[in-house]
């Protein structure tokens, strides 16, 4: 009993357990659901959310919040594609990703300057830049779909790491773009844990004043956080482009809250100081599973929102309730 309590005492394990139970229930409704094919499909569908989530996790760990990343992602993606096609340059696929990351990082500089140098509140700044980046994209760069995707990008999109048939004969595949997610995950994990820069992010999230007092240049660290988060958002945008094989300037914006929910479900706290790569990825998988599997089980899509909402409330509320119950028990156990 107490082991079970310990298990559900952290948001991450609540979410993980719920996800497992959820998968079993869907599996009972639809026996084809529980298979390797489903898992691969799930991974494919959570690629973009997962990459975005890694950038958001960094920001949350530092005690900030970023809602502008989808606008950064779509701006970087669409601008890169327009640029390459407009100049008609022969561009290797890697080049697309590099340019998108650079544009994303460039937009991140604006967030970073406003937050790190001027010290403005992160929510206000990124709400502003969300609207600003998206507006600038649609006003100055373009509003039309770009569907004449370069041949090498199509080839990249068609290259799969794994490809197999599921029980009903549909093909599921894990595209090469998975490498982008894996690469970003490894780099961010190393950065957050092995470098002093990453530890300073957690320190600032834990106590900004404390960080300042031991000589950490808080503004400079924050500036770099938003630049890196911008670069990651650019990579996510480009990944979205290769998966959909079309550059749509109206995509992505609107999914901010899903990504933030994924990161919070993965154990990051809005108040800062907590968050991990594995948690963010787990959160992204769970959110994607809910969004796609309910549909496949024939549940109306509005239910997704309800389930995600319940999961957030239970995942963050249950550990707090357990903690209260424990301290009450500890008090009663003390000698009077």
């Amino acid at each position: 009993m107490s082991r079970l309590v310990a298990l559900i005492a952290s948001p991450r394990s609540v979410v993980f357990l719920t996800a497992v139970v959820f998968a079993l229930v869907i599996g009972a409704l639809n026996p084809n659901f529980l298979s390797v094919a489903t898992l691969i499909d799930l991974l494919r569908n959570s690629l973009v959310t997962g990459i975005f989530a890694l950038g958001v996790m960094m920001v949350l760990a530092s005690g900030g919040i970023d809602v502008s990343f989808t606008a950064v992602g779509v701006f970087a993606m669409y601008a890169t594609v327009s640029l390459v096609l407009g100049l008609d340059l022969p561009m290797p696929v890697v080049g697309f990703f590099v340019i998108a990351a650079l544009i994303g990082a460039g937009l991140g500089i604006l967030n970073g300057l406003l937050i790190g140098v001027l010290g403005l509140p992160t929510l206000i700044v990124t709400l502003g830049t969300l609207s600003f980046f998206r507006g600038a994209l649609l006003t100055f760069v373009g509003t039309t779909y770009i569907s004449n995707v370069p041949r090498n990008v199509i080839a990249f999109a068609r290259t799969n790491i794994v490809r197999l048939e599921n029980a009903v004969g549909q093909l599921v595949s894990l595209p090469l773009a998975f490498v982008v997610l894996a690469g970003v995950a490894v780099v961010v994990a190393l950065m957050m844990n092995v470098t002093q820069f990453g530890r300073k992010i957690y320190a600032i999230g834990g106590s900004e004043e404390g960080a300042r007092r031991i000589g950490i240049d808080v503004g400079w660290v924050k500036l770099r956080i938003y630049v890196i988060a911008g670069g990651i958002a650019g990579l996510a945008g480009m990944t979205h482009f290769t998966l959909s094989r079309m550059a749509n300037p109206f995509d992505l914006v609107g999914s901010e809250l899903d990504v933030i929910a994924a990161v919070v479900l993965g154990g990051a706290r809005i108040t800062g100081g907590h968050g991990s790569v594995s948690g963010a990825l787990l959160g992204a998988l769970v959110i994607t599973m809910i969004n796609t599997s309910l549909l496949s089980a024939g549940v109306p899509s509005y239910w997704q929102k309800v389930v995600v909402g319940v999961l957030i409330l239970v995942g963050t509320g249950l550990p707090i309730a357990i903690e209260r119950f424990r301290s009450q028990r500890a008090r009663l156990a003390r000698p009077a």
């Binding site: 530890r199 957690y202 106590s207 100081g273 907590h274």
Partner: peptide, 13 residues
């Protein structure tokens, strides 16, 4: 080294 009244530690570490 100055130790402030609130200690300025990082609770999350």
């Amino acid at each position: 080294s100055v130790i402030y009244q609130d200690f300025s530690l990082f609770p999350n570490l």
